[in-house]
Amino acid sequence: MNPISLIFLAFAMSTDAFAAAIGKGASLHKPRLSEALRTGLIFGVIEAITPLIGWAIGQAAADYVQNWDHWIAFTLLLLLGLHMIYNGFKDDHEEAEKPNQHGFLILAVTAFATSIDALAVGVGLAFVDVNILVAALAIGLATTLMVTLGVMLGRALGTVVGKRAEIIGGVVLMLIGATILYEHLSVQ
Rank of each mutant, 00 (worst) to 15 (best):
M84R: 08
A113C: 03
E183P: 10
A73M: 04
T148M: 07
V121A: 03
Y64I: 14
A113I: 01
A156Y: 15
D69E: 14
A113K: 03
S27W: 06
A120K: 04
L141P: 02
G124K: 01
A36Q: 00
F89W: 13
A135M: 02
S186H: 11
T75D: 06
K24M: 15
R38V: 13
L157E: 09
V121P: 06
D63Q: 10
Y86H: 14
V109W: 09
E95S: 07
D92W: 10
Q101P: 12
L28C: 02
G88T: 02
D63G: 13
F74P: 08
I7R: 01
P99E: 03
I49C: 14
A60D: 09
A20H: 03
P99L: 02
A156T: 15
S5T: 05
A17G: 02
G88R: 01
Q101T: 15
G122M: 03
V45M: 11
V123I: 03
A36S: 06
M174E: 05
Q59I: 09
T114N: 05
A165K: 05
V134I: 13
G25L: 03
A120I: 05
Q188A: 15
H184K: 04
P31L: 05
P51L: 00
V160L: 15
S186L: 07
D91Q: 14
K30L: 14
V172P: 06
L33K: 07
I167Y: 08
L107S: 09
A12I: 02
A36G: 09
W71E: 11
I22T: 06
S186K: 10
T179R: 07
M152T: 02
A17Q: 03
G103R: 11
E94M: 14
E94S: 15
I46D: 07
L137K: 04
N2P: 01
L141V: 00
G154Y: 08
A20K: 06
A19K: 00
Q59H: 13
E95K: 09
A26V: 04
G88E: 04
A60K: 11
I180G: 05
M13S: 02
D16W: 05
A19S: 08
T39K: 10
G25E: 00
S186W: 04
A135D: 02
R38F: 14
F43K: 08
V123R: 06
I106C: 12
E35F: 00
L141E: 00
P99T: 00
G170S: 04
T114E: 00
H93R: 09
L80G: 04
F127G: 10
Q188K: 15
K30N: 14
M174A: 07
E97H: 14
I53K: 05
G150T: 03
L149D: 03
G58F: 08
M13E: 00
A113E: 03
S115A: 07
V121R: 08
A126N: 06
I106M: 12
V121H: 02
G154T: 09
